[in-house]
């Protein structure tokens, strides 16, 4: 476990336990209860198990995060329609209440499991684990996890996904990445949604949004997309196809992948020791 083997000691915290460091173990401190363990290590452990499960079935798992109403479900509906007959998709929906989003997805002939989180503002790896067992993974190529609409909490919980997508819709304003850095830093790709509104909401400057993202020191690409007029859909679908193909190649090599940015030490929590990325 991670509290005994030292795998939690990372570049960010090793100064605490180095000789002279704050938590250095001394002769007189023989009864020390130094821990250095991630607060969410139980969740991370479950997430690693989920990821193994996806990998075992050759499935690519993509976590969609955004504020409520940024267009996650609409994007999924358009994606499912566009990839019908090409890639088999399953969806895990997270909301505080209602089965509405899962019903929207099922209308397209795609399996969807709704997680009603009650008061919880995010999905965690245990909730996703229960939902995963409701999906026939052998019959799927991509599982989308539509997280609870929230620009804060979902970023802190690994679910076992391979990639994170964060949506920023035009009506929200171009400085959201500066206001919610943890969320946008977690993204492997940022989708600027409802781009058909750009001519109307002309105070939104995509270049300003892009600069805010760059300030977060992330290489994540930001692209515009509109499910209304189809702008950017081809680029998004091409990214998905490439990620799906890459996942197939990784699985064949016995490897796995994680989102580029992980909480401190989480990249060392590999369940099997398989290379992370």
């Amino acid at each position: 476990m991670c509290d005994t083997c030292g795998c939690n000691i990372t570049a960010g915290n090793q100064h605490l336990i180095r000789p002279g460091g704050k938590f250095e173990r001394t002769a007189s401190g023989a009864e020390s209860v130094d821990v250095l363990r991630g607060l969410l290590s139980e969740n991370d452990h479950q997430a690693a198990h989920n990821r193994e499960h996806f990998d075992g079935h050759g499935v690519l798992a993509v976590n969609l995060m955004s504020s409520p109403g940024a267009g996650k479900t609409a994007l999924l509906e358009a994606t499912i329609q566009a990839l019908a007959g090409e890639l088999r998709i399953g969806v895990i929906e997270g909301d505080l209440e209602t089965e509405n989003d899962a019903e929207r997805i099922r209308r397209h002939g795609v399996p969807a499991i709704q997680i009603a989180t009650g008061t919880a503002c995010h999905l965690d790896a245990h909730m996703v684990h229960d939902a995963v067992h409701g999906l026939a993974l052998d019959e799927l190529d991509i599982v989308f996890i539509e997280n609870v609409g929230n620009l804060v909490c979902p970023a802190s919980f690994d679910l076992g996904q391979h990639r994170n997508i964060t949506l920023l819709s035009v009506p929200e304003g171009d400085d959201k990445p500066a206001k919610y850095p943890v969320m946008f830093r977690a993204a492997d790709r940022i989708l600027l949604t409802k781009s058909d509104l750009l001519p109307v909401l002309d105070d939104f400057d995509p270049e300003r949004a892009r600069a805010c993202v760059r300030d977060l020191a992330t290489p994540a690409v930001m692209q515009t997309v509109s499910v209304k007029n189809g702008e950017g859909m081809a680029e998004w679908l091409e990214w998905l196809r490439a990620e799906r193909a890459a996942q197939g190649e990784r699985v064949a090599r016995g490897e796995s992948a994680r989102p580029a940015v992980q909480p401190d030490g989480a990249h060392l929590h590999a369940h099997t020791g398989a290379p992370a990325r």
């Binding site: 939690n8 570049a11 960010g12 915290n13 605490l16 938590f23 020390s32 209860v33 130094d34 821990v35 250095l36 363990r37 991630g38 607060l39 969410l40 802190s156 020191a217 909480p263 401190d264 030490g265």
Partner: peptide, 12 residues
């Protein structure tokens, strides 16, 4: 990032 994203239980 060298430090700043820690969420650790360090000692009891």
């Amino acid at each position: 990032l060298v430090s700043g994203d820690e969420m650790l239980l360090t000692r009891l």
